[in-house]
Amino acid sequence: MSLANYVLRRVVVTIPVLLGVTAITFSLLHVAPGDPIDVVTGFQNVDDDVEASLRAEYGLDRPVWEQYLVWVADVLTLEFGESPVTGRDVGATIAERLPYTLLLGGSAWLLSLLIGIPAGVVAAVKRGEPADEVSRIAALAGIATPNFWLGLVLLLVFGVHLGWFRVIPPDAPLLSLEMLWFMLLPTITLGTASAALVMRLLRSSMLRELNEGYVRTARAKGLRERTVIWKHVLRNSLIAVVTVAGLQITLLVDGAVVVEQVFSWPGMGRLLVDAIGRRDFPVVQASVLLIGVTVVVANLLVDITYSYLDPRIRYDR
């Protein structure tokens, strides 16, 4: 089977999963304590008439399955309705916040690969030597440090004491130099643990692969050691790492919730936390849905990368 066929099949299989995500997201709020009407009415006792008309307005009087279908139909057209708390369009609110999270998460992810992969390769090749020991200790520290603490320390040292960074984001467009400079600390905060994980994982899978027969064949052919490692061994070792790197995307979303608070970063994480606090159901629903979809898409990308790296996978079944 060609790679294109494989990708197509994976995409098709993803559709029911996405439907499942919408169903779970939708039902979450219906099993969660608290009635949306209370929020609208500001937790005051109101007339039954008023309440009934409010319910009708938000469609809360209709059967659950009908509410679900209406909601899915809206979601498919990217219509998330209006927040009963702020009165603003939910889609617009998210569109405002999403780029911040994507940029921060994306750069943290990139950082984790840019540091984790070379460090993992070096640690495996220099096994038992000082470089390996140093990276092992660094990785342990990286994994063990809670990211909110790391963020606070970085802010304190480089923001408050040294004054190299602002403590809150500058009032500048997202893609301005100022903003990107500010983003450095949150990126490090968010990317450190992932980098450490990728590094350790790659190291152990490289050590396994280095014992494989094809490595000896590659050397016996007279290839440069560089080619043996970076072409032959790395590609096989990455197969194990891709799964984790993909799942890291999910972790980065989680981490963003905390890190965005620490750095006052106006992304999805803070939006979600605020919305939960205010019982802003449509916003919570849309945010959770988005996170769910991100996870599904990340998994899809993992599968595709996986099959690109390892041709044997494409031929299964």
Partner: peptide, 20 residues
């Protein structure tokens, strides 16, 4: 290596890299 002395190994399925 490979140019003047070349090697053939015992287990061909292990000797070839599965991803190329």
């Amino acid at each position: 290596r490979g140019n003047e002395i070349a090697m053939v190994f015992q287990d061909p399925s292990a000797a070839l890299n599965p991803v190329y």
